[in-house]
């Protein structure tokens, strides 16, 4: 098992390297660079920037070198010193700009993942046991609805509901009175009051998917002969359902959760832009528009890293849960 984890972790390295190269190419794609944006900004404000000054700055940031050299420099600094470069726009180390927002992104992702698991797994088990009942049909209906409502729309609807019903405009992370307050119960509740919209929106699509998978797997497992064997032992329906089919149907869900992480991280970016939550999403949008390339690159890279780590964890969990996979590894 230990060897498997090591091997699986080592496999991440080339993946991340290739991703970093793709990311670097992508952030290099827009014509021109940050200095052009800066120059045109200054020009529009009536301040000129001499060509010689631009050339000087370009040399300082290494923007005059070839893409390959720039990439090698960039990735070497990241790997050796965890140095993601400077943000042009913020005039700070990229890591310092990202760090506080990274934790918010991670928090929202984990919160919605937990919400998905807590709601979807019991729901999936329930509807599989009551096939074609009212509850089953309702769950199917909501599953489709959850898949069909665009995240932006759902965020807007929830914000609209919160605004018209509770007269609160839950943008940002904290209300004014808790913005700089020390941590307290009130502050945590205030934080949750601001985070519930993204968490619910992100969990809805995931829940719909997990209920569908859970229901299908449960129906499949419930028809397997080992369920009869368990019945023949005299176990109660509740006990045998939980011990056998439900336990086995969890396995595909665990790998599903791994694949859901990129979707959650992705959607989180959009939802946070809509709901104005200070995560990496809005920062990414802003850095892309300003051609703040190292900041943008670092954000995409970190989001990809979250995804890769997520699938790693789900692979490890799956191996722990399923002895067949575990033994195939060894």
């Amino acid at each position: 098992m230990f060897a498997f984890i090591i091997r699986r972790t080592a496999l991440m390295v080339p993946t991340m390297l290739i991703i970093s190269a793709i990311v670097f190419v992508v952030i290099q794609l827009p014509p021109g660079d940050f200095l052009d944006t800066l120059a045109s900004q200054l020009a529009s404000q009536g301040e000129g920037l001499a060509d010689s000054q631009i050339a000087l700055l370009r040399e300082r940031y290494g923007l005059d070198q070839s893409i390959l050299v720039q990439y090698l420099k960039w990735i070497t600094n990241i790997v050796t010193a965890l140095d993601f470069g400077q943000s042009f726009e913020w005039n700070k180390a990229v890591l310092d700009v990202i760090a506080p927002r990274f934790w918010v992104t991670l928090g929202i992702a984990l919160l919605s993942l937990a919400l998905t698991a807590v709601v979807a797994i019991p729901c999936g088990i329930y509807v599989s046991l009551r096939q074609y009942s009212l509850g089953d049909n309702l769950a199917t209906f909501f599953s489709f609805l959850g898949l069909a409502v665009p995240n932006v729309l759902m965020t807007l609807v929830l914000m609209y509901a919160s605004f018209t019903l509770f007269d609160s405009n839950p943008g940002g992370l904290f209300s004014a009175q808790y913005q700089d307050a020390p941590w307290s119960v009130g502050r945590v509740l205030d934080l949750l009051a601001h985070l519930w919209i993204p968490a619910v929106v992100l969990a809805t699509a995931g829940t719909a998917e997990v209920v569908r998978v859970m229901r299908a797997t449960m129906l499949d497992e419930l028809s397997k002969p080992y369920v009869d064997t368990a019945r023949a032992k005299g176990l109660t329906e509740a006990r045998l359902t939980m011990k056998y089919p439900a336990r086995i149907a969890i396995n595909p869900i665990v790998s599903k959760l791994g694949w859901m992480i990129p979707i959650i991280v992705s959607s989180e970016a959009v939802v946070s832009i809509v709901a104005d939550i200070p995560t990496m999403g809005p920062l990414l949008l802003r850095s892309l528009l300003a051609q703040d390339m190292y900041l943008a690159g670092a954000i995409i890279l970190l989001l990809a890293f979250l995804t890769v780590i997520g699938t790693l964890i789900s692979d490890i969990l799956l191996a722990l849960l399923d002895p067949r996979i575990r033994h195939a590894m060894e």
Binding site: I19, I22, P262, L288, I299, A304
Partner: peptide, 17 residues
């Protein structure tokens, strides 16, 4: 590899170009 890059951030990067 493509699937492990979160799609929307990648799209955002490409669309910004």
């Amino acid at each position: 590899i493509i699937r492990s890059i979160p799609t929307i951030p990648l799209w955002m990067g490409l669309a910004a170009a």
